[in-house]
Amino acid sequence: MRLYAKQHGIDLATVRGTGRDGLITRADVEALLGSAPAAAPSRPPVTGPTTTTRFVGHDLAPWSSGPEVERIPVRGVLRSMAEAMTQSAFSAPHAAVWVRLDATRTMELLAALKERPAFAGVRLSPLAIVAMAVCDAARHFPGVNSSFDAEKGEVVVRRVVNLGIAADTPRGLIVPNVKGADRLDLVGVARALNALVDTARAGTTAPNDMLGTTITITNVGPFNVDAAVPILPPGTGAIVAVGRVAPAPWVVDGEVVVRQVTELAMSFDHRQVDGALASRVLRHIADYLEDPAARLIAG
C-alpha cells in the first residue's frame, strides 16, 4: 500500500483509514485519488498557416495570406525590449545553472491552501511559491540580489527584493515588479502577482512598476516547456526560469514512483555572482519547493 500511495503522489499521513483499527486500505487511497479535482488540460492557442498570431506586439498576418516579406517598425515595447536585451547580452557576462526537482509537496500544499478562507478569491499558482522561495534565497544569500555598476566601479547589494515577473502581453514582453516582495506573506505575494499580471495583460502597467527590479522570475511552464536559459534584465544579477510541473518517474526511498517534477534554471551576471554562489542559491530554491510548508512555517 505504501508503494501504491507513493506512485500516485499520496502522503499516507493525509489518508483516513477505514479498515480494522484504522488501517489504511487501497480503497481509502483510491477514494482520495477520485476526490481530487482533475487538472484542466493546458490548451495551446489554435495556430496554423491560415490563422493570425501575435508577434512583437502586432497581429501577424497568416502564412498563407501575408506578404512574402514584412517589415515591422521597432518602437514602443519592442524597442524597449530590444535595447534592454542587447545592453544586457553585451555588457554582462552570462552564465547559468539548473536543477531538476520533486515539486509534489508544492502542488499538494497549493491544493490544500485553495480550500482555506484566507485564499478565497486569490488565484494561487506554483509561481507564488517560487516567488516566496526566491525571496527566501535572497535573504540567505544577499549577494544574488545585486547589480554591477561599471561606471562607479561598485557592486550594489540590495536588502529589499523588488521581484520582477516577465510577462507575455499583447504588446510584447515586459518585466514589471512587486516592490518589497520579501516583506509579504504568501497571501500578499499571491495577490500582488495577480494584480501585476492582470495589469500587464490589460496594457495599463505604469512605467514606475518596471523600475528598480533587483531579481527576476520568468515562468515558461504555461507554454508546456521544461526549461529556458533567460537573458538578464539590465541592472540585475540573476533571473530564475521555471518550467512546467509534470508527472515523471522519480526515485523515492529506493523505489521508482510517479512524482510532480519541474526544472529550474538561473542565469546570472558572472562579474559579481560566481558559480558557487549561484549553485547554492538555486539549490536553496529547489529545497524550498521540495518542502514548502516547513519553509513557510520557519519564515
Rank of each mutant, 00 (worst) to 15 (best):
Q7L: 05
Q7D: 12
V15C: 00
A31Q: 13
L32P: 00
L33G: 14
L33M: 08
G34T: 07
A36Q: 09
P37L: 08
P41G: 08
S42D: 10
V46C: 03
V46W: 04
P49E: 15
T52A: 14
T53H: 11
D59C: 07
A61V: 09
W63M: 14
S65M: 03
P67H: 04
E68N: 05
G76V: 11
A92T: 15
H94I: 00
A95C: 12
L101V: 05
A103C: 06
E108K: 09
F119W: 11
F119Y: 13
A120K: 12
G121I: 07
R123A: 12
L124W: 10
I129P: 03
V134D: 07
C135Q: 02
D136Q: 07
D136S: 12
A137C: 05
A138G: 00
F148H: 15
V157Y: 14
R159E: 15
R159T: 15
V160R: 10
I165H: 10
D168A: 15
P170A: 01
G172W: 11
L173W: 06
I174L: 12
N177M: 01
V178E: 02
V178M: 04
A181F: 03
V187E: 15
V187I: 14
R191T: 10
A192R: 06
N194R: 07
A195K: 12
L196T: 08
L196D: 02
R201G: 02
A202L: 01
N208C: 09
D209P: 05
D209K: 07
V220L: 14
V225E: 05
D226C: 00
P233K: 08
T236R: 15
G237Y: 00
A238P: 01
V240N: 03
V242Q: 12
G243C: 06
R244S: 11
V251K: 02
V258E: 11
Q260D: 03
T262C: 08
S267K: 10
V273C: 13
G275R: 02
S279V: 11
L282C: 03
L282T: 04
I285W: 01
D287G: 08
L289I: 06
L289P: 11
E290D: 04
